[in-house]
Design a protein around this nucleic acid. Structure first.
Lengths: 109, 109
DNA sequence: GCGTCTACTCTGTGATACTATGTACCAGTA
DNA sequence: TACTGGTACATAGTATCACAGAGTAGACGC
């Protein structure tokens, strides 16, 4: 995929993670694994953790510590009302952009 | 639209401009006006010029100077073979990302 | 003990869009 | 002449964000 996907993920990865969290709460390692499973093969772990810190600071998610059978305790993130609103805004923005691009692609065939 | 679109444009704006150029050659001012016309209302002029310099340095476009009836001469950009290849790669990457996101949006309804 | 998972954290770097400002050329107008 | 506004290009500085890379720490099997 090269470097294009890296830049394209800016701004969208946040929405992707929030969308995942809107289905069910999850912790960092789990989210990274999920992203890789859905095709984002070379997402860096550090990227996801940094993103989680960011959306926590923005107040879009709630955090709970759960003990783990393996390794250090997990920080489980769940989306809150503000995060839901942000996610809806994200879908609107995405819809706009995707619409423009599909239109361009259609013309260029 | 807020700040979300700003980050989302990273990585896509380059493809958008190349797609525009693949229809017909154009110059900076014209491209900016076109983008605004298609809904990207607050694209900054400086952003477009910087992007054009970048894709020129990458060798994705050819440049010709044309005198203008008004103001300084226009730098008319046209996409070349390398740019076409880059654009096709862009559409593949975009298609992948859009597919994942549509899937996520479908689940979250 | 030693290696190997799992899970989280942190620092620094590079790419990119934006802000703000400046340059230059021309037409119309008072 | 002087001023205004539209056209056209350019650039220095800033913020954001994904990535690379390295590290910390607990639990398990050998």
């Amino acid at each position: 995929m090269g470097k294009q996907i890296t830049e394209m993920l800016k701004g969208t990865l946040e929405g992707i993670v929030l969308a995942i969290l809107s289905e069910q709460p999850a912790y960092g390692y789990e989210i990274t694994a999920g992203l890789r499973g859905m095709g984002f093969a070379d997402i860096a772990e550090g990227t996801v953790y940094a993103l989680l810190v960011r959306i926590e600071l923005k107040g879009l998610v709630d955090v709970e510590k759960h003990p783990s059978e393996k390794g250090p305790p997990r920080k489980v993130y769940s989306i809150n009302a503000q995060g839901q609103a942000y996610l809806e805004e994200f879908w609107r923005t995405w819809g706009f952009l995707a619409g423009r691009l599909e239109h361009l692609r259609g013309e260029g065939n």
